[in-house]
Design a protein around this nucleic acid. Sequence first.
DNA 1: CGGTATCCTTGGAGATACTG
DNA 2: CAGTATCTCCAAGGATACCG
Lengths: 144, 144
Amino acid sequence: MPLNRSPGQPRSKPLAVPVPESGCPVDALISLIMGPWTAYIIWVLLQHDSLRFSELKREVHGISARMLTDRLRRLEAAGLIIREQQLGIPPHVNYELTVRGRELEEIMRPLEALARRWFAEDQGNGRAIAEAPPAAAVPRLHRI
Amino acid sequence: MPLNRSPGQPRSKPLAVPVPESGCPVDALISLIMGPWTAYIIWVLLQHDSLRFSELKREVHGISARMLTDRLRRLEAAGLIIREQQLGIPPHVNYELTVRGRELEEIMRPLEALARRWFAEDQGNGRAIAEAPPAAAVPRLHRI
DNA sequence: CGGTATCCTTGGAGATACTG
DNA sequence: CAGTATCTCCAAGGATACCG
């Protein structure tokens, strides 16, 4: 069954749509939000009504245009963001979270709360949160 | 500053401990829990008091011994799990979440709640949650 | 049982250049 | 401005074999 897409011609690559073999909803959701950069992008979009491509690229520090494009396409295909193209020269393309996308705030809030608490505790102990080694396949953001 | 470790000789590879360049606590926490398999492992450990290596491997469907070992080491270094070795033949090694590790429940619960809700809604629509393309670098679980 | 050591493959992701 | 199109590299992670 086709996903709801933003208006416009269908993409050349239909983007395959596999379901996690475990069939577990939690797995599925984790799959959805836990790729490289994805949570970061969602996080940024949650704090704005709408952002243009270049603004998004500026906010998500260090991401490349190629990566950003790719992640946005996936999020769009998952029904979490909407892409709105304003024709003209120069073109404007706005991205914003869908209603469903905004529900991710339910996850991001507890995440932020815990992060801040740990951070405060660790400051007192002279430790730093995220004292964990990097996993290069999950660059920048995703370390364990 | 050294991390608290389970008893035993220090590991040969001290496991470098970089801090996310963004300095953002949310980034740091996401870094901590969002690698391949990591959330899955935490999820499983949250539902048990303690699990042995082989039990863990059985619960985390599809993970290889190498990966499991690696992830457990990282989680241990991050202070989220404890490794307890029972000497003897055959040896027993138990893993359990630390107090701090158990606080991750605050994140996993909302995640589960949202996942179940979306799953239920999507069942009604004939859609499937996680209708999103795979990202092979984040295998099995982590798809976007 | 609970790992480590090695080999090997694949595709993730950066850099660069180009386009409507 | 908002992307695509290539090229390339390298390391994540699976498979396999072995060890205390």
